[in-house]
Write a protein that binds this DNA or RNA. Sequence first.
DNA 1: AATGAATGAGGCTTCATTCAT
DNA 2: AATGAATGAAGCCTCATTCAT
Lengths: 226, 226, 226, 226
Amino acid sequence: MGSVTTRKSSGSTTAAPAKRQRAGSSGSASERRDHLVKLAAEIFARKGFQATTVREIATEAGILSGSLYHHFDSKETIVDEVLSTFLDDLIARYRAALESGSDPRTVLSEMVRIGFGTLEPHRAAITVMQNDWNYLRQFERFNYLVKAEDEVEQMWVAQIKAGQAAGQLRADVDPKLTYRMIRDTIWVAVRWFRPGGRLNTTGLAEHYITVLFDGLATGERTTQKG
Amino acid sequence: MGSVTTRKSSGSTTAAPAKRQRAGSSGSASERRDHLVKLAAEIFARKGFQATTVREIATEAGILSGSLYHHFDSKETIVDEVLSTFLDDLIARYRAALESGSDPRTVLSEMVRIGFGTLEPHRAAITVMQNDWNYLRQFERFNYLVKAEDEVEQMWVAQIKAGQAAGQLRADVDPKLTYRMIRDTIWVAVRWFRPGGRLNTTGLAEHYITVLFDGLATGERTTQKG
Amino acid sequence: MGSVTTRKSSGSTTAAPAKRQRAGSSGSASERRDHLVKLAAEIFARKGFQATTVREIATEAGILSGSLYHHFDSKETIVDEVLSTFLDDLIARYRAALESGSDPRTVLSEMVRIGFGTLEPHRAAITVMQNDWNYLRQFERFNYLVKAEDEVEQMWVAQIKAGQAAGQLRADVDPKLTYRMIRDTIWVAVRWFRPGGRLNTTGLAEHYITVLFDGLATGERTTQKG
Amino acid sequence: MGSVTTRKSSGSTTAAPAKRQRAGSSGSASERRDHLVKLAAEIFARKGFQATTVREIATEAGILSGSLYHHFDSKETIVDEVLSTFLDDLIARYRAALESGSDPRTVLSEMVRIGFGTLEPHRAAITVMQNDWNYLRQFERFNYLVKAEDEVEQMWVAQIKAGQAAGQLRADVDPKLTYRMIRDTIWVAVRWFRPGGRLNTTGLAEHYITVLFDGLATGERTTQKG
DNA sequence: AATGAATGAGGCTTCATTCAT
DNA sequence: AATGAATGAAGCCTCATTCAT
């Protein structure tokens, strides 16, 4: 379990183990909570964290705004859950890819696929992270976001360096810089990607992998140095 | 004058007529105004548009919040000016590049350089556009942002298609998709780029141009189809 | 049974009938209720009535806030019980002292001792009465507090007047005023008295009785008129 | 200047020096502020700090509740000003009495008179201090209340000890305990004292001084030991 | 060009209480 | 006897904006 996961479980004050699951009932306490988090995530994504009122979230859930506080300590606790759920999943997937033992280029391709693969299931969370990161990181409670980001960066940079060492990747690019560009290119796609268009996220990933490794140009590489 | 510029002058209904009134004077109204816009842009970039209060801007300027309303109709008028100033400049530069008559690949390289080149002078505006776009576009008054975006998209896509037609760029990539990835990669750099680091924006641009055209991989292109 | 006691039993409409139902049983409803009242009294004393939430009381008792309503109609019912229990006890003791048939000065001394003697067993209730009286008396349901206060006042004033008539107490002091000062001096001690200090409540009482009857000064009385 | 005074002046964020007193206008900014503080003090005294809403204060002042925040940071800032104004005045008066150079018994009598003398001008503040002290002291910002209380205690205890050393006061009483009883007796009078009754505060003071020094009893002192 | 007082709408949150289970 | 979800009213505070001076 990574730092994000760890923090989250201690942070969710109401994270009760599904108590006395009511027979025939459609959801436990934690399911209700998860449902609310998903609703909120959609609105946060659409309007931005600050512009979203707790009343909107509550109304969307069919309850009164005060009732939300039966489930969450604060509005921030809700985004917190949105973001950490995404990061937990992402980091878990990255780890699995790293443990495959494949060569660096293959691992990196897989990591690109993982990234694009989160675009649909975690669309709302990624959107929030893109748009409200700058605001949220001001608060101490979101320090773990920076830590998770660092952990991910190290995974990528290590693979890029390994690829250079193995001669698979050109040696004249800066690993950290390259990582950042890849990262941004993937996540920012959330702003315009809509399921049902010409390409699905798999297609997007393959398209990007192509350009990323072989470039846009035709013919021989002109700038190769390493 | 582009569409953005046009809209802007009609948008600043209050102060616009007075703008050149005292042109040449050192403490002119328009200079004061520009100064305030710059101050505001910095705070918007740091804290986000919504999280920035009118009072903060005023305090930074050494006046009271009510006094800001002698210069601007509203808080939105201020961001408006921040964003349109940037877009005016950007579009003007792109036009110049397009009019150079160079081959598509050269023009595209130049456009990448232009993009990275705005990172420093327009850092605040680009940051605001990245972070608050989603929120601002909800308001009718910012429709022109979408128009400007479309205009820019057409410039890029046309060049990419021209490059493919001329055989300079691989034909198996989607021009629009490719444009978006390039665009995002450039602008999102504003989140982590800090002047004074290993690379300046020129270095960044060249680094990216290399990877963009030739790819990360070494050896022969493996996925080339066109 | 005094007026306080009477009012109380009619006040606790819900649980009262059940009270002696299982008298003698070790886990009876009334014992549970008394336990809860004591818990609540401590918190009321520490934080003030208004600042104490029903949830705090419930949590302290190891149950959920809603569950408290099986025992009490409302938060006010709880303080009500806290205060009336104290007043019942106090008035009963005063009556006993009055019925001793001793001379006024002796009775008054005994009443002082009774007052200080409640400081420990009824610390919480006295604290609540001191701090929240002003707030609680706004509500009709607490009118009985004023009645109990009046009853006590009459007991004291009568004894003081009797002492003056008998020549035991100086005639140039106002009985009502004197009573109030004595009363306040005793009760307010709850704010600083802590068991285990230099003096216990018996010591406190004797100390006060000394000063009260003989004054702080040495030598002959200088202001004696009557 | 004492600690209370010092703290207060740094605490009053808006304590502007009466700027540009508008000719013909009835009050400066600080006068307006003082007026609001007085209004608030009355309501705090009547209903208690917590039970008083900012809306009530504002309504009483003829403005909207939000407008109060033009003058004060928070509801707590208002009580703060209420209490510190009183304590500043009280401590200043005590100091003057101490500097008179009179014998201890005379000084103590004067201090009693000072105490009762504040009952009318500072009735609201004293009431608040009596009723809401327990609640307010929970907050760090009111730590200075405790400090002020300590300072006052030292003044009194020193005089009582001096009186004992000089043979003016009986030696068999505890100075600290005695101080506390005097203090409480004076302040708690605020709960029942109403101007216009049989005795004014001067009468009250003399009444209490009599009882305090000479006691309630007639004839020779019976418990004198020192 | 600026002040300073005020508005008014709205935001987040708290909390006593209810009620179905 | 207790749970847990929800209510609904209210509370404190924020903030863009207005306006008389």
